[in-house]
Computed example of a mutant assay.
Amino acid sequence: MHILSESERTYWLALASLPAIGARRFHSIIEHFGSPQAAWLAPEKDWDGVAGMSLSRWQKTLQYRRKDYLSSFLERIYYGGIEALTLQDERYPELLRSIPDPPPVLYMKGQIQERDKVNIAIVGTRKATPYGEKVCSQLTEELVQQERTIVSGLARGIDAIAHRTALEKGGRTIAVLACGLDKIYPKAHEALAAAITERGALISEYPPGSPAEPGKFPARNRIISGLSQGVLVIEAGEKSGALITADQALEQGREVFAVPGPITSSQSKGTHRLIQQGAKLVTSIEDILSEVQIQFNFLAKPKQEIDLEPNEKKLLSHLDWEGKTIDQLIHCTGLKGPEIAVLLTHLEMKGMIKSLPGGGHFVSLL
């Protein structure tokens, strides 16, 4: 990964901010010209045919390549208290970096911490029923207790409930916006957005000054799923935007979870369709944790030198994050069931392993 110089970084940010240049076109432009600076300084005629667009279609966008635009754009970032992370920055989220067409720039208010790599996205309808509100609050609280960061889209309904519950229960949360970070949408959530910056982050791929527009929300949704290990859908109608997030999660190789609802509720038709298509049905937090199979405290645990008995070492050598049952451990170690049960208890007391919810599988924390 090439670390950008200050000059390269300036042109990277400026080019990515221009109208009509989304993530896919940005990468095509870089491939064509070799660098953002070369693209920014190239004569107009050299843009003919770039990213499959004629020069006439590019001309409105290219008018922004002025010195006064560049300086005012950088000032809006600086005076807005906004941090801009490029795809080349080490602090750019690794999960998001791995998706197709990752945003070339992430604008951020707040802070992404190491612990925010362990997270779940929660999305759903803007018109949550009392049932949806209760389920969202309960599952969010339990995920926060397991040190999961909650990712959502700051929309009304399920999104807002997930963000607020995470904050109320002392957890962390990340909101992904479909507008500039100085144009909070909906406006009624400005106070919530400010609270999120204190224990999490506001994130957008759109530069300051960008209003929320219908076409930006599907693109925003791919970031919600891209930042997350899994996406939990709580109430979604047949045409809900949450279903777009779920589809994008599947394309990105993320887990998709859905909460069933009353068959008479129009707000559950979308979640029921997801379940029919193979999403993991969720009736409790254990359904999420058992599928993801990564425990929540291991990142914070310092590695320690602990004396182990030979059979403890033998057993530990056969455990990883995927988890194994006692029967599987009997088969691969040759040890007897009662002996393995005692060894597992000792290893768990030493903080070397942990049983997954339900008690059937054991994983290594090393």
Rank of each mutant, 00 (worst) to 15 (best):
R156N: 05
E147C: 02
R164E: 15
A191L: 12
E142Q: 15
K187T: 08
R172K: 05
L181K: 14
A175S: 14
P186Q: 09
G157P: 03
E168R: 15
R156E: 12
T197L: 04
I174E: 05
V144R: 01
A160Y: 02
S152V: 07
D182I: 10
G153Y: 03
E198G: 01
G180S: 11
T149A: 10
T149S: 10
I161K: 02
R164G: 03
T173F: 01
A188T: 14
E190G: 11
L143F: 02
D159N: 07
P186M: 06
E168C: 06
Q145E: 15
A162Q: 02
R199N: 14
G157H: 00
G171W: 05
T173N: 04
H163F: 05
A155P: 12
L181M: 10
E141T: 13
H189T: 05
Y185Q: 10
E168H: 09
L143G: 03
A166R: 12
Y185C: 10
A191V: 12
K187Q: 13
L154Y: 12
E190F: 12
A178E: 03
Q145D: 14
E190Q: 15
G180T: 08
A195P: 00
A166S: 15
R172H: 14
K183P: 00
I150G: 07
I184V: 15
G180V: 07
A162L: 05
G157Y: 00
A166W: 10
I150F: 08
R172M: 02
L167W: 07
G171L: 04
E142L: 15
G180C: 09
K169V: 07
E141R: 15
